[in-house]
């Protein structure tokens, strides 16, 4: 333990090692802050984390040095420092938690010999994602773990793990948590998971189509919470309009139940929800192979829909929107009911 108080200057590797030693110490002691000594250790840990941050980001005197960052990153992932840091995070004070979050975020992007070694580490320690996701259930930790999680899912393999894990179901609850800051953070992560890595998302959605969209419809699109409905319909538009998800889109717009939900959203008094719902609704109409029951619903509601679109306007002029609207109106007006 004497080595802890070596005089400066220390190399980046020294700082990582010392941080690790202090984390091990913190991890072993269930009751921190009991003695002066422990308090001092905690202070020392805070200082070290701050120093890691300033090596990675630079400070008011100096720019970050690529070589130092690489050494730090290599040492950090050579051993289990990330696991310790995540585990001990609740024991750290607010400022140190924030510093640690920024350090973890930065490390995800550091390359060592043109490899993202963070990705390799996380693949081998993928259970850490379980801790990070569960963070949304802890008011104190949610924003820190949430921010770390969003950085980790920049790696495709990590995002794939989270998407395919049981955690995915929990997000439907997390994004409706009453604490707005936490719910919004979870929503941002959810969106990232479903939009960032195109091929992974497309694969996930086709494999999990049934439960995913059943939950999506009932929990999000039909939620009683305004902001949930609004974010969900926007995200649904983003997902379905993405070229890589075209198979999923075709399937989605062939369902009569989905059409019903979207038509209800079109009738909302909130202009923003109406508009976002339109961007999904138009896909049902534009579908060249509309099933008979979809055509039937559109024909039955033709006059109502046309009346709705007659006064349907965006606040700002939007040529694309007007063109889409005109197309939808033409298409609906020309529909003929199909035989059963």
């Amino acid at each position: 333990m004497k080595s802890l108080f070596k005089p400066k200057p220390r190399t980046p590797v020294d700082v990582v090692r010392q941080t690790r030693d202090l984390l091990i110490y913190t991890d072993r002691n269930p009751d921190t802050k009991e003695t002066k000594r422990e308090e001092k250790q905690m202070l020392e840990l805070s200082k070290n984390v701050r120093e890691l941050k300033s090596i990675l980001y630079g400070n008011s005197e100096s720019e970050p040095v690529a070589e130092a960052c690489a050494q730090l990153t290599q040492e950090f992932f050579r051993d289990n420092t990330l696991r310790l840091l995540i585990k001990c995070l609740p024991k750290l004070n607010l400022e140190t938690r924030k510093d640690a979050t920024q350090v973890v975020a930065n490390l995800q992007r550091q390359q060592v010999q043109s490899r993202l070694i963070a990705s390799d580490y996380l693949e081998a320690n993928i259970d850490l994602m379980d801790t990070l996701v569960a963070g949304y259930e802890n008011t104190e930790m949610a924003l820190h773990y949430g921010a770390m999680l969003r950085e980790c899912i920049r790696h495709q393999s990590v995002a794939k793990y989270v998407l395919e894990s049981q955690h995915m179901k929990k997000f439907f609850d997390y994004i409706q948590l009453p604490n707005f800051d936490i719910a919004a953070d979870a929503a941002a992560t959810f969106k990232e998971l479903l939009t960032r890595h195109k091929s992974t998302v497309a694969e996930f959605l086709s494999k999990n189509y049934d439960w995913f969209f059943a939950e999506y419809n009932s929990k999000l699109l039909e939620s009683t919470n305004y902001i949930t409905r609004r974010q969900a319909v926007k995200l649904l538009g983003d997902i379905l309009l993405d070229r890589s998800n075209s198979a999923v889109m075709t399937r989605y717009v062939s369902s009569r139940e989905n059409l019903r939900i979207l038509m209800n959203l079109l009738r909302e008094s909130s202009k923003s929800i109406q508009l976002e719902a339109f961007h999904v609704f138009k896909l049902f109409v534009a579908n060249q192979n509309k099933p008979a029951d979809i055509v039937g619903i559109l024909v039955t509601n033709r006059s109502k829909l046309l009346r709705l679109f007659a006064d349907f306007k965006t606040d700002k002029e939007d040529e694309q929107f007007e063109a889409d609207k005109a197309h939808v109106v033409r298409e609906i007006a020309a529909l003929e009911p199909k035989g059963p």
Binding site: L143, A184, D185, K234, S272, E276
Partner: peptide
């Protein structure tokens, strides 16, 4: 909120 943009990114960032 009905007057704010759909992705709420600014609001989320500030709340955080």
């Amino acid at each position: 909120l009905d007057r704010s943009r759909a992705d709420f990114d600014d609001i989320r960032r500030e709340a955080k």
